[in-house]
Design a protein around this nucleic acid. Structure first.
Lengths: 123, 123
DNA sequence: AGTCGATATGTAATCATAATCATATCGACT
DNA sequence: AGTCGATATGATTATGATTACATATCGACT
């Protein structure tokens, strides 16, 4: 075996949480969550995608897929006019994000609480 | 928007949990976890990879990477001899899997407990 | 009526990941 | 000594995801 790239103490726990359809398809994960939050803040899909460093094409496709799988809209989109157009969140989207955040917080707490025990068990 | 592929009630929560290095590289996730458990059960990396439907090449590479990042061995490998060779888990690997399972269980409980509330919030 | 910039969406190119292929090594057992 | 089957590992190919490119649409404001 080659020499270790890092000490075992550099190990930590990470997780991803997402909303899924029965089909197994992911509906909303961390990426779309951040994207929606930025849309809420900036009022623009394009600006949000740029901020997050992903292509507009992907950002747009992600949201479209989410909306199709959920069966309701997450964003209100307007094109043309002032500034070329805008995107904003629907109330349902805001509720969803809030619920997602709350759950995330609980999961974070669970992991934090268990981390010391985990490290001890694995030395 | 096209008609929904599924009702909103078909939505549920999923998560992934993994051990990570500070670099962000994943050390052990669900895949390697299952692989190691199968090795423990079957005594063979090849058989485990086949059982899980992944290539031996990938399975071998995954374990090698895990071991390099952790800085210690997860498996004891023997080649040649009876049956061509065998792989077994080290004690450290067993401890790690046990800790991983315990944490998983806690996360499962957290999600289950929060699920009803989540659905209610999102209707 | 024309401009501007974001939304909308198809298609082609690129990149990362995994599978496939190919080959070597090892050692208990015949 | 030769066989067999798993471990070991490089090289190539295939697959899927993401980006890049290209182009159309829309509408408030000049």
């Amino acid at each position: 075996m080659k020499p270790p790239k890092s000490s075992k103490n550099d190990v930590f726990l990470r997780y991803k949480l997402w909303l899924s359809a029965v089909s197994g398809e992911g509906i909303i994960g961390e990426g779309t969550h951040l994207l929606l939050r930025k849309i809420e803040e900036m009022g623009s899909l394009k600006a949000s995608a740029e901020f997050l460093g992903i292509s507009y094409r992907k950002a747009w496709g992600d949201i479209k897929k989410s909306e199709e799988l959920l069966g309701y809209d997450l964003t209100v989109k307007r094109r043309g006019g002032l500034g070329g157009g805008q995107s904003d969140l629907t109330t349902k989207a805001k509720n969803l994000l809030e619920a997602y955040d709350a759950l995330h917080k609980k999961m974070d707490t669970t992991i934090e609480d268990a981390y010391a025990e985990f490290k001890e068990k694995t030395q």
